[in-house]
Amino acid sequence: MAAGMKGLKKRRRVQVIVVMAVALAVSTTLVGIAMKDGINFFRSPAQVAEAPPSPAETFRIGGLVEEGTLARGQGETIRFNVTDGAASIPVTYTGVLPDLFGEGEGMVGTGRYIDGTFEATEILAKHDETYMPAEVIDALKEQGVYQPPDAALATN
């Protein structure tokens, strides 16, 4: 009788391990799917102008804050255009801007493109290429408006 109980316990333990392995595989898959959705694709203003993303899609946009477009509206809402030299996209943002944020400066925003305006939920200011994402530099170089930081240092 004791031998029969041992076999039963062993079979039960194997079943528990199999169930746990399946649960782990399922949860890993779900986390992977969730993370895939959470990765914010980067787009330049020119790419947004050519192929506007759906309002449901959260993505990152980057470029330079266009000169003469920065306006502080009612409350804490700020409006400005982000440009890569080829296209200019209107941006709205409600919140506190980073210290380095200003016209002619590099920026990256995360948000959604709704009715022709990028509604940012986060703004990061970039003041030189050591902080500027490679995608922004590539987009600016593509349009011929990229200035390496060494050029700025030479004029100081």
Rank of each mutant, 00 (worst) to 15 (best):
A25Y: 02
Y113M: 05
T110H: 04
A3K: 06
M107T: 05
I89G: 02
P53L: 04
E135L: 01
V18I: 15
G95M: 02
Q47M: 11
S44Y: 01
V19C: 04
P98Y: 00
Y93G: 05
L124D: 12
V14E: 14
T28I: 11
A34Q: 06
P98N: 02
K126W: 05
I137K: 12
S88M: 06
K36M: 13
Y113P: 02
I137M: 09
R72V: 14
L97I: 05
A71E: 15
A51W: 09
G109N: 07
N156W: 08
D84L: 05
T94R: 06
M107K: 05
E119M: 04
L24S: 07
F118G: 00
V31T: 05
A71K: 14
A49W: 11
A154N: 06
E135N: 05
I89K: 00
T28R: 01
D37W: 13
V22T: 07
A71Q: 11
R11D: 07
P98K: 00
E119Q: 11
A152K: 14
I78E: 02
R112E: 09
A134S: 14
I114E: 12
F42K: 10
K6F: 09
G106A: 02
V14H: 08
E50M: 08
K141F: 03
A154M: 13
E142Q: 12
A34L: 08
Q143G: 04
T117E: 08
V96P: 01
T83S: 04
L100P: 03
H127N: 15
E67W: 15
G62P: 15
R60G: 11
G106Y: 14
D115S: 12
E129D: 14
K6L: 14
Q47A: 11
K10C: 08
F59C: 06
V91F: 03
D84T: 00
A151H: 07
D138H: 08
R43V: 04
A86Y: 04
K141W: 07
V18N: 08
R112N: 02
G116L: 09
G68N: 05
I61E: 03
V48N: 01
A125S: 11
V108L: 00
D138N: 12
L24E: 04
P45K: 00
